[in-house]
Design a protein around this nucleic acid. Structure first.
Lengths: 211, 211
DNA sequence: GCAAAAGTGTTGTGTCTACACCCATGT
DNA sequence: ACATGGGTGTAGACACAACACTTTTGC
């Protein structure tokens, strides 16, 4: 439309995260978080997907909206940040950097990445978001590596399996993976029973009375 | 500034909640959520406080940003919603309505109120946000009524006290409230040990190894 | 003493951690 | 046989729900 230039700038940034080689990585574009100016009539979510390989995104959610100093003029500049997740076997094209070892970023981008990681860590504990980081099917040891990289601490495969199966988050496929070069028992393959986000641990306390 | 009218409209709405008479209530302004257009150079949070009695707000946090249909023209209209909380003994001036018995609201406002209530309910379980709904000091039975109204289900005073004290959220003041007309044991008065939000139940599961 | 309101004791249950042990495969 | 990697059994810790019981007040 002709009034495009009369709109105050509103940008959408995406923090796209992935686990590869046991590290949590974020997608950068020209040394910054990928993003775009919101076009007239465009939804925020559509804008977030615009500069990301949308097919690879298994999950996308809004993080927060901030005012950032503008790059050129001094006017208030609004930025809405999104968190996107890509499975570890997804098309990994792009400029991925380990979170926690990032190059210098534009003002504010670093904080947004940390907010995204904090959100991911919290949601791994009480939702099934893991599906968005894991391949379609996987062995528990593979899932363990993904959780450990995302959470930043070691995870016991024993308990990971039992917790997620008890909650109904994971289900066995019946298939098995062949053992590696050095032998070892074949690993059972699992899948996430749902591939969209759900809360799996609803009540921290104060649940409603049984009757 | 002279360029005010050239900015695309970005509004900030506030869902201000309060418990009064054992009901969760929301503040309305002229039949809609209170809000304002963002002024140039103004922060989102300052804008949210602008049309609310800012002294009474014990807590304010951002909810989400949406695109809503504009009221007059057909352009995309961005709205950032905030959740504000007022203690039950705060200055209650304003047009308060019971959540769940609201008059017809502008498009989208109803959903935002429900999102705010859902956020409050979740955070009551794993943070100390209760401080923002409760008076400075209170008896457990009073806190019970506040939690029950906000959560929408009955709450046991026995367990509420033990859970919150064990977590270090509540602490006894040592003072007691005189008994009512019909007698009864004097109630001990408590306070929240912190008056800003903290996470009190950090790990739902998968906590880091003990050593 | 009795009713009312508040607080404590105690038991049970569910969910998680930790760790020992058992199973299936390759060499 | 034995090393390697995967899975199961089980005991203990912890936090919360439920409910009975005791304490402190007014009448």
């Amino acid at each position: 439309m002709a009034d495009t230039t009369t709109r105050a700038p509103h940008a959408v940034l995406a923090v796209v995260l992935q686990v590869r080689d046991r590290r949590l990585e974020v997608l950068l574009d020209a040394g910054a978080l990928p993003g775009a100016e919101l076009a007239p009539g465009e939804s925020l979510e559509a804008c977030a997907r615009r500069h990301v390989d949308a097919r690879a995104l298994a999950h996308l959610e809004q993080l927060e909206t901030r005012t950032l100093p503008a790059r050129r003029d001094a006017r208030t500049r609004l930025v809405t940040a999104y968190l996107g997740l890509v499975p570890s076997d997804g098309a990994a094209a792009g400029d991925w950097h380990a979170v926690g070892d990032l190059p210098p970023l534009p003002a504010g981008h670093g904080e947004i990445v940390l907010a995204a990681r904090a959100r991911l860590r919290a949601k791994l504990s009480y939702t099934n978001v893991g599906f968005a980081l894991a391949p379609e099917t996987f062995a528990i040891s593979e899932l363990r590596d993904i959780y450990a990289a995302a959470l930043g601490h070691d995870v016991s495969p024993t308990n990971l399996q039992r917790v997620l199966v008890r909650r109904g988050v994971l289900e066995p496929t019946g298939a098995h993976r062949g053992p590696g070069r050095a032998g070892g028992r074949p690993a059972a393959l699992f899948r996430f029973s749902a591939r969209k986000i759900e809360i799996t641990d609803q009540f921290g306390f104060l649940r409603p009375p049984a009757l």
